[in-house]
Design a protein around this nucleic acid. Structure first.
Lengths: 142, 142
DNA sequence: TCTTGCATCTGTAGCCGCTACAGATCGCAT
DNA sequence: ATGCGATCTGTAGCGGCTACAGATGCAAGA
């Protein structure tokens, strides 16, 4: 493919295939204004350019890294204004990292609790179960 | 407090305080039918009994352990019918445990990616940032 | 040129698990 | 009797999509 073909732009389906972002989601991103309104063909179909492809793939990666839409919006706003320092981006990232670490800890506690319950369970064919017993205990200290 | 006072039942606010479940959420649980319709006072306020308190606290604990509402509904349905074996409960639990472990793995990968990005970042006062660069790379293999 | 058939369009409603109102009523203490 | 907090119903919103319906666009083959 030459650069020439590229200048025709990308249809939404191509954007979707390139980035792995669902078509409906791309339109959703436009609605919530983290993607710009693209050009349209004479008939009204969306036509994206390479910058927009890059932007969408940025969003996709960031989502995969667990950034919220609002975090991504903040990053993109800074980028759009060319109004950011590397330090700012770094601190957003480490902040997000901290919340990821917290989630991991919470899940580990959960894992432990579930494992304990499962271990205490004889899993017999009897209608009686230490797991349910545990879950049904009414908390004492309120 | 004697058993006598208890027979008057619990107001929704007491249920909320005892279990830590938000009042609005208790009503929501009633609407989606994982909590039964409680008695009402003459004036129409909800009056719960001890079984219902136990049930709500069961739901709370299960939610804290990450069970979905539908999983909880399944558990409670079995309990209501007295139609379960310990083995069934055990397998629901271990299934859920597996999905928790998966989430932990995914978050660890994420943690690693974020740490790598952050480490490469000089966090200077300059308007240029390896984190953004990484995020903006357009995927090659599509 | 016409047709076929996939791609895309807009708009709206639904998903989960709550949460947050508004505006009315209840119920308990003084 | 009155004041005021607790509770009531009903509805709409959150995040982040996803799933329609029903109408068009567009490109390739006959």
């Amino acid at each position: 493919m030459s650069d020439f073909t590229k200048t025709r732009g990308y249809a939404i389906g191509e954007m979707s295939k390139s980035t792995g972002v669902n078509i409906e989601t791309i339109r959703y991103y436009e609605r919530i204004e983290i993607m710009p309104k693209p050009d349209r063909t004479a008939g009204g179909n969306r036509q994206y350019n390479h910058d927009q492809l890059k932007r969408l793939s940025f969003i996709k990666r960031s989502r995969e890294l667990g950034f919220s839409i609002e975090e991504i919006r903040a990053l993109l706003t800074m980028v759009d204004r060319s109004d950011f320092t590397c330090g700012e981006v770094h601190s957003m990232t480490t902040e997000h990292l901290a919340s990821v670490k917290e989630k991991i800890l919470a899940l580990h506690r959960l894992e432990h609790a579930l494992e304990t319950m499962a271990a205490e369970c004889g899993r017999g064919d009897v209608p009686d179960c230490p797991i349910l017993d545990t879950l049904f205990e009414v908390g004492v200290a309120t």
